[in-house]
Design a protein around this nucleic acid. Structure first.
Length: 112
RNA sequence: GUAGCUCUAAAGGCGACCGCUGAUUUUAUCAGAGGAAAGUCCGGGCAGCAUAGAACACAGUAGUCGCUAACGGCGACCGCACGAAAGUGUAGGGAAAGUACCACAGAAACAAGACUACCUCUUUGAGGCAAAGGUGAAAAGAGUGAGGUAAGAGCUCACAGCGUCUUAUGGUGACAUAGGACGGAGGCAAACCCUACUGGCUGCAAGGAGUACUGUAUACCCCUGUUCGGGGAUGUACGUUUACCGCUAGAGCUCUAGAGCAAUUUAGAGACUAGAUAGAUGGUUGCCCCUCGUUUUGAGGACAGAACCCGGCUUAUUUAGAGCUAUUUAA
């Protein structure tokens, strides 16, 4: 789990990123990102009720993604806001190293 | 053993590494989801609305006695229904206050009476009868035997049974048992309605205090409707945004003893800080345990995530144990 400082969720921030950010799509994720003026990077993970019905299952997906991000974080200093949108419920059961690899490649794509 | 019924308990265990939220003696230690945290269906605490008042309207509840802070909850008991039994279910007041409805079928559905059948006569018809047949969820409460008649019929009698009223006995009571009198044409009140009882409204996004901004009116405003009664007022009322308080030790839990059939309650002792805020309580992994499969490898371990706090109800769901009933000697 990331520190509270590096997560964000306020209505304004999320909505601003949705409106002005760039989007990268893959079968399991979308990544929306936009520069911010805070001087550090922030992340949000969104899991829709359409993906998983119960709160327990959504929490598990959210925590795994946050954990993968936490392990990737030392390699980056992007000074941007990022939103990960989850489309596929396999993330709850898939191999953790594979999940980490997918998130790594997504972040790499966004650097280009 | 098999089939069934009831009750109770647990919610895999111990570690490693890396994290998150909170607290503190601040860089290290401690604490950190459930039996349903869920649905938000009831009831309260708490908060505000005037000092929280009255009547009507409206809504809810509906066997009795008890328990409780309270309840539409719980316990015990009564009646009825289901079951072979253990047991289970039950909104279970009022239909001679009034209104509405009773499809299809059927002769006929609450208003008269009669389709088939039976009997009589002056026989293309008229009259008598309401037992039998058939329809339907429902067709006057009425079975057996005897008398009776043109044919019949509770028309009459005996026995059995039903309903209403009433007397006695038992019970706090619902009611039960026994006796007496009378039998008058349905059902439906989770249809309107009547009766009794209960309920002021809004909910922690309540509300408090504060910051910044905006705008309106001296009319009105004061938490649903109508009426009555009452209160407020110059910075009063309304709206938007952000951090803080509210925010967790409690009508709570465990044990022992007493009261009670029980729900529950009295006394004593003991243990215990989840309080986050788009929302922490996790991720990865090792060994053991259980289930499936198997030479091994392996797969799986339910339902499900606190959001002011309690008491219930309902729904989801894995496993284990105990007691009881029936069947029988089949394993």
């Amino acid at each position: 789990m990331l520190q509270k400082k590096f997560r964000f969720h306020s209505r304004g921030g999320v909505r601003y990123t949705y409106a002005h950010g760039k989007t990268i799509r893959t079968p399991k994720f979308s990544l929306i990102y936009n520069d911010n003026s805070r001087g550090f990077q922030r992340f949000a993970v969104v899991v829709s009720k359409k993906v998983e019905k119960t709160a327990v299952a959504r929490n598990r997906i959210r925590r795994r993604v946050y954990e993968a991000l936490r392990l990737e974080l030392p390699n980056y200093d992007l000074k941007r806001d990022h939103i990960f949108i989850v489309y596929n419920k396999d993330i709850a059961t898939m191999d953790f190293s594979e999940l980490r690899e997918q998130i790594h490649s997504l972040l790499e794509q966004s650097m280009v």
